[in-house]
Design a protein around this nucleic acid. Structure first.
Length: 274
DNA sequence: CGCGCTCCCTGGCCGC
DNA sequence: TGCGGCCAGGGAGCGC
């Protein structure tokens, strides 16, 4: 489901119901999502107060009052629902339920179960195997043309694949990579190494721009995604290439093409992107 | 080491 | 309506 803008939106939506609240009851209805949940997961979360909620790449992180961090990745289909009071009877894909002393219930639902949750000591958070190799946050100060250019230097993979690599820049997924490449006029097939330099300088503001605009619209809703509030995202109406195979390019009118790179669909305009 | 492919799951949709 | 095939926003792990 979710790339950076969707995860950011979910994270913001969870702040009200969770931050400063104690988890009075935590229910775990499965042993594993993508991987096994940690031992005694629900027991260890129950009774804790959430002090801060934030995002790194596509991970939602919650500082607890006992020095541990609750870590969640939504995978492809993970969703967070907020209910006033108790949740209705859980469905078969509702895997974790959290009741707070503020009177809300947050339900984690994930029908494909590609998501994950873990508990990590705060002082070693970024040593977690899933966080330790992440590249810079694309909306942060540490991401700029020089940094991106250096990361692409010498890479023989297509730029599309390189931008999906979370070690190069963290948080982009299939949609926003396609969109950013279109806005920059760079072919997804171009080797990453040839984007180093001037093209990398142009890519950085395009990536920032598309992510910022998507966050402002509450992310993109294709199939599953809804904000924690239950609202849909609206950025999908602004897609220029993603999911538009055969439809006219908004710039030149040529039909948008689809190709498969590293097993994922890429959408692009063969005329505007070189 | 760096790359692409397969696989982990379920469900929606399309064509027959 | 049913069924098979294909597709899906992620990304670890493996083989080359």
């Amino acid at each position: 489901m979710p790339e950076l803008p969707e995860v950011e939106t979910v994270c913001r939506g969870l702040e009200g119901p969770l931050v400063g609240q104690q988890l009075t009851k935590v229910t775990q209805r499965r042993d594993k999502l993508r991987w096994p949940l940690p031992d005694n997961f629900a027991q260890r979360l129950q009774g804790r107060t959430i002090q801060r909620l934030y995002r790194r790449a596509k991970y939602i992180l919650a500082d607890l009052d006992d020095g541990w961090v609750w870590m969640t990745h939504l995978g492809m289909s993970g969703r967070m629902f907020i209910h006033d009071g108790l949740a209705p009877d859980p469905g078969k894909h509702d895997h974790v339920l959290l009741e707070t002393d503020g009177g809300h219930t947050v339900v984690y639902q994930d029908h494909r179960r590609f998501g994950m949750m873990d508990l990590v000591p705060a002082d070693a958070l970024y040593k977690h195997r899933l966080l330790q190799d992440l590249g810079p946050e694309p909306l942060g100060n540490e991401f700029n043309g020089v940094v991106l250019s250096d990361a692409l230097q010498g890479r023989r993979t297509p730029i599309k694949s390189a931008l999906l690599d979370q070690k190069i820049v963290a948080g982009l997924g299939n949609i926003y990579v396609c969109e950013a490449l279109f806005h920059t006029g760079i072919s997804p097939r171009r080797l990453a190494a040839s984007v180093a330099g001037k093209r990398a300088e142009r890519l950085v503001p395009a990536i920032r721009d598309v992510l910022t605009k998507a966050i402002a619209k509450g992310g993109s809703t294709l199939r599953d995604y809804v904000q924690a509030s239950g609202e849909l995202g609206y950025f999908q109406h602004e897609f220029t290439v993603y999911g538009r195979e055969g439809e006219p390019c908004i710039r030149c009118g040529q039909p948008i093409k689809r190709l498969v790179q590293a097993g994922r669909s890429t959408f692009f305009c063969a005329k505007c992107q070189r």
